[in-house]
């Protein structure tokens, strides 16, 4: 089981992601944003950070990098992809996930642990039963999820809402949404950082299960 972690110029959480995945017992390596092949990788991580300096809009320029064309194509064929924080913004800009992430309601960067509730969803990544509450850190200035009414109704009907802020959205997100997935469940984007809490040394390992679900699924298909 090998994860590829995409390195965009301006990414700053790719080392955390690689470290977390290796700590969990998986192979993990970096994929350069100019690469257009995902050969050899079973799943892809779009890490947090400020790709291309967040110029224009968060994720707006990163989505046109060669690796994103490959990700768009392969994810359509079932390749598991997780976008964390800036990675979630890139996935919405690339229209691989619906909606968009705008400035936090209070226009402040928020960096603290929040309580998330795992919802009943089609997401392949998460290995927690619905209703589980976990503490996961957030660190973003633009994590305020928005979409139109029709999209929200579809997200609910298709069970695409994966995690919600259990104590209200600190950033103003619509319907307290913290993370969503595509209809098939293989593409998952969330603002919180589960990779930061995968080892008790860092205070908690409650984020590990955000990666273990997909590993179990891929293992079972062998």
């Amino acid at each position: 089981m090998k994860f590829g972690v995409v390195r965009f110029p301006g990414a700053n959480c790719e080392q955390d992601a690689v470290h977390a995945l290796r700590h969990l017992g998986f192979e993990a390596d970096y994929i350069w944003h100019q690469d257009s092949s995902l050969k050899g990788y079973n799943a892809v991580v779009l890490p947090g950070g400020f790709s291309y300096g967040d110029y224009l809009r968060c994720g707006a320029i990163a989505r046109f990098s060669p690796v994103m064309s490959a990700i768009a194509k392969e994810s359509g064929a079932g390749l598991p992809v997780i976008g964390i924080c800036n990675g979630f913004q890139v996935l919405t800009e690339a229209h691989l996930l619906p909606g968009a992430l705008i400035k936090n309601k209070e226009t402040k960067f928020i960096c603290r642990s929040v309580k998330l509730r795992v919802e009943e969803s089609v997401c392949q990544w998460i290995d927690y039963p619905a209703g589980t509450e976990v503490d996961i850190p957030i660190a973003h200035g633009e994590g305020n999820y928005v979409c139109d009414d029709k999209t929200l109704a579809e997200l609910k009907a298709n069970k695409q809402i994966v995690v919600r802020y259990a104590e209200g959205a600190p950033n103003g997100s619509l319907d307290d949404i913290a993370g969503i997935c595509n209809k098939a469940g293989n593409v998952f984007g969330l603002m919180p950082h589960p990779e930061r809490v995968t080892d008790k040394v860092s205070g908690s390992d409650q984020g590990a299960a955000f990666f273990l679900g997909i590993a179990k699924l891929l293992e079972s298909r062998k």
């Binding site: 705008i102 400035k103 936090n104 209070e106 226009t107 305020n144 139109d148 103003g172």
Partner: peptide, 14 residues
Amino acid sequence: TSKEGIFDPAGENS
């Protein structure tokens, strides 16, 4: 500009 119906946090806080 922000689409109608999309909250504009920077505008509202200003």
